[in-house]
């Protein structure tokens, strides 16, 4: 039987590769590889051999030109040694093959700035939105309630009833679109998968610190129309066991953390559709 294979790209300032890979394994992937970007650029590792691509958290190139900007540029222009293609060609093929990409935090910033999200009508590589400095002007590490949009096409959120409780850890997480039309379309198509909300997952909120960055319409996560590409500012890989929860010593919690469901759904999707 074929294996469900996940890849986590690291290098140049990616920081969450260990826990992202751990979450993939717990989620049910048979194989998970942490690949340094140089492994991809030398052609030693190819995206084609995987089903689930994790673009995870960190500070790519120090976020020096704005979060993830330099990596977006690198992925666009860098050639793969020994192969007659750019890395972006592999990435486009990966998407066309119906495979999954999850961008978390810096990975979400990267996806949005490369144009992988929202990518209306499959127009990948055209940027319509961005993630910019938090309204509070500071990096924040705090936990947030994320109300799920049940009607979203995301393949990752099956079984999420009300929402998830996860940490955010970013300075540039404020979601902004290029136009009202873009926002309207995101709303109409239910692409805003998670929104910052009150503790009961009742209503989206613009209030700090529940909404830690001032995102438009409290959007914390975004998927494309196929639901296979998703990006989110909160860190699902940071809550896969109850001891990750900030109040685990005082609340009755299940053994598994809220974030794990996203990885389980990804593995299930791969098994059902890609193997």
């Amino acid at each position: 039987m074929a294996n469900a294979r996940a890849i986590v790209i690291t290098g140049n300032g990616t920081n969450c590769e260990m826990e992202a890979a751990h979450a993939c394994r717990l989620g049910g992937f048979d194989e998970t590889v942490i690949a340094h970007i140089s492994d991809l650029l030398t052609g030693e590792i190819r995206l084609d051999d995987f089903h689930f691509l994790n673009l995870t958290g960190g500070f790519l190139d120090g976020d020096d030109l704005g979060s993830a900007k330099a990596q977006a540029n690198r992925l666009r222009y860098a050639k793969v040694d020994d192969l007659a293609e750019h890395l972006i060609d592999q990435l486009t093929r990966f998407i066309d093959d119906g495979k999954l990409i999850l961008g978390v935090c810096n990975g979400f910033q990267l996806m949005v700035k490369m144009g992988l999200l929202p990518a209306f009508d499959g127009q990948y590589l055209q940027q319509n939105a961005t993630l910019t400095f938090n309204d509070c002007g500071r990096f924040q590490d705090r936990w947030v309630y994320l109300k799920v949009d049940q009607a979203s096409p995301s393949v990752y959120t099956k079984g999420v009833e009300k929402g998830l409780y996860l940490p955010i850890r970013h300075g540039e997480g404020k979601f902004v679109a290029d136009s009202a039309a873009t926002i309207d379309r995101i709303e109409a198509q239910h692409l805003g998968v998670f929104r910052y909300s009150d503790a009961a997952y009742g209503a989206p909120t613009m209030e700090f610190p529940l909404n830690p960055n001032g995102s438009t319409n409290a959007i914390a996560a975004l998927c494309n129309e196929t639901g296979r590409l998703m990006g989110m500012m909160p860190h699902p890989e940071a809550f896969v066991h109850r001891t990750h929860h900030p109040r685990w010593t005082r609340e009755e919690l299940s053994e598994e953390g809220d974030g794990l469901v996203l990885f389980k759904n990804a593995a299930d999707f791969v098994r059902e559709n890609l193997l």
């Binding site: 969450c16 260990m18 896969v240």
Partner: peptide, 13 residues
Amino acid sequence: RRYDHEVQGGSVV
């Protein structure tokens, strides 16, 4: 809160 105290995924207390 300005310091990431959870990266690497091992935070317990």
